[in-house]
């Protein structure tokens, strides 16, 4: 990949099929309430129970489609930090997940330099090595300690020796301020520490782009800062290209070069943090910001 790394997203569309069970109205059947309802019958005779089959109605499964991404086009240049905001279900995460093809696009294309990510013939593993990803729920490997979590992917994927990989892992742990936790298992670490290990794990593959999918949403307030600091250090020291789904305004103001506001699968507005937060053009953006600020 060249130094002029650029992500281009062209008319990306992602459609999910949603299956819903639809209950049709049960047929009305006159239910005899008591013996008196049936004329000409002795009250001692048992009342026949109404047949249950007709009463339940038929259930149908209806397929509907949901546009998670609708004609999304944008590009990210090298060194940019792009923040994606928007209400839940607006397609922010889907956008990130399509970039490293954890989801397949339904239409449109995503290019990283001259590699077409959305082309099924592309070796997606090469792309994934270049594009690190950090998840909302950390997704650390619970059977490995911090060092093992960071060292395993380079050993398996890049064929690094154990010693090399461990040395790299130690350096990365030090960078995220966890050098004393190398032998701790994920269950023994706090949420913030786990997320920092996850960042180090993604960095161990030496990616050119980092994607963060709501990295602080699952954290207690006092742990958010340590994770954001680690992310900030990444932009400041390395000029890492980053795509961040997050509503952290502090991070947006400190690091973001552009902010993208998405709603219902569409990009509503793109702008500098200053412009978008303080003086948005679109009505939808204004309404959303009123809710979160």
């Amino acid at each position: 990949m060249s130094d002029n790394l650029k992500i281009r997203i062209e008319r990306a569309t992602k459609v999910f099929n949603v299956y819903e069970r639809e209950q049709s109205e049960p047929e009305e059947i006159a239910v005899p309430r008591g013996h008196a309802d049936i004329p000409g019958r002795s009250t001692l005779e048992p009342v026949p129970l109404p047949r249950t089959r007709g009463r339940r109605g038929r259930s149908k499964i209806r397929r509907s489609t949901l546009y998670a991404l609708k004609d999304v086009s944008m590009s990210v240049n090298r060194g940019e930090v792009v923040l994606v905001i928007g209400p839940s279900g607006s397609g922010k995460s889907t956008l990130l997940r399509c970039i490293n093809r954890l989801e397949n696009l339904t239409g449109g294309d995503i290019w990283i330099d001259d590699i077409c990510v959305s082309d099924s013939k592309t070796d997606i593993r090469k792309v994934r090595e270049e594009v690190g990803m950090v998840f909302q729920s950390f997704n650390l490997f619970p059977h490995l300690d911090a060092l093992g979590n960071i060292a395993l992917p380079p050993i398996v994927v890049k064929g690094l020796s154990k010693a090399e990989a461990h040395e790299r892992a130690r350096k990365l742990l030090k960078r995220v301020g966890l050098e004393d936790k190398e032998h701790s298992y994920p269950a023994q670490l706090s949420g913030g520490q786990q997320q920092r290990v996850a960042i180090a794990r993604a960095l161990a593959m030496e990616p050119h782009v980092m994607m963060f999918d709501e990295p602080t949403s699952a954290l207690d307030p006092e742990m958010i800062k340590e994770v954001l600091d680690a992310m900030l250090a990444l932009t400041e020291e390395e000029g890492m290209t980053m795509l961040v789904v997050s509503h952290e305004m502090g991070f947006a103001k400190a690091a973001a070069t552009r902010v993208v506001f998405m709603d219902e699968g569409e990009i509503v507005e793109i702008g500098t943090p200053d412009k978008l937060f303080n003086n948005p053009d679109e009505e939808r953006t204004k309404r959303f910001l009123e809710h979160i600020l």
């Binding site: 954890l102 994934r128 990803m133 998840f135 997704n139 490997f141 593959m205």
Partner: peptide, 23 residues
């Protein structure tokens, strides 16, 4: 095993087989 484990492994560039074996 939570599906996030497979996703994380794939996102790191492991193949499905490698992810199965190591994760």
């Amino acid at each position: 095993v939570p599906p996030g484990q497979m996703e994380a492994a794939l996102a790191l560039g492991l193949s499905r087989r490698q992810a199965m074996q190591h994760i």
